[in-house]
Amino acid sequence: MLSVSNVSKTYAAGDKALDDVSFTIPSGQVVGLIGPSGAGKSTLIRCVNRLVEPSSGTITLGDTPITGLSAGELRAVRRRIGMIFQEYALVERLTVMENVLSGRLGYVSFWRSLLRRYPSTDVQKAYALLDRVGLIDHASKRADALSGGQRQRVGIARALEQDPELLLIDEPTASLDPKTSRQIMRLLIEICNERQLPAIINIHDVVLARQFTERIIGLQAGRIVFDGPPSELNETVLTKIYGEEDWTTLDNESEAA
């Protein structure tokens, strides 16, 4: 379970990215985080694993308070949180296998990781995950030899290799075509259900968010302005999140889908 309470973030330049944000996510729940560009979605999920340092507030994963940890303790928490990125963020010149195994970096010693001598259980798990995402034949290819959808699958396998208790997913479909986007979203949801993994998915695409998530949080200028099931996400709410626009086509689209 993840709980975020009263988190604010003000950047050095004085921009207030997050303003008193609070919510909790029980295990197994997949939350879609929506909002216009610059609303603070990306900052919020990066505060959870402290890639961005929150200015105030507390974040707790299970029984571990994430805010206020030392560098070593922070590493131990980070390995419990898997992260999946917008443009895959694979290390392009490493092989698919090395990218997946890099999910174990928080667990193995520097020498093991330097010499690529991971424990055999880690290697077996990596093969199993590559099989799960349909890329077992690509293990020895370089990451930059894969297509966008395949790279995102490697990104998913890397996050799962960590044996995470929580997934942070930053715009997983923003660089993908509509069909691949849906396949990736479906895969993510299936995996979260299989493992009872809670997840936060930052997502631009309101239609996809409605279609695939069970709860939606709407962020506007750093504040939560909506928190509820997708069915309650109507025109009034969308206007509150994104501002005035003709939302009728979007409604029809998601009803058709």
Partner: peptide, 22 residues
């Protein structure tokens, strides 16, 4: 490309591992 090294930091990698992988 900072995205690649950010992803490595997010796994809980140490500084030396970050240099070696990211």
């Amino acid at each position: 490309d900072e995205k690649q090294s950010e992803a490595i930091r997010a796994t809980g990698a140490s500084w030396l591992q970050l240099i070696n992988y990211g």
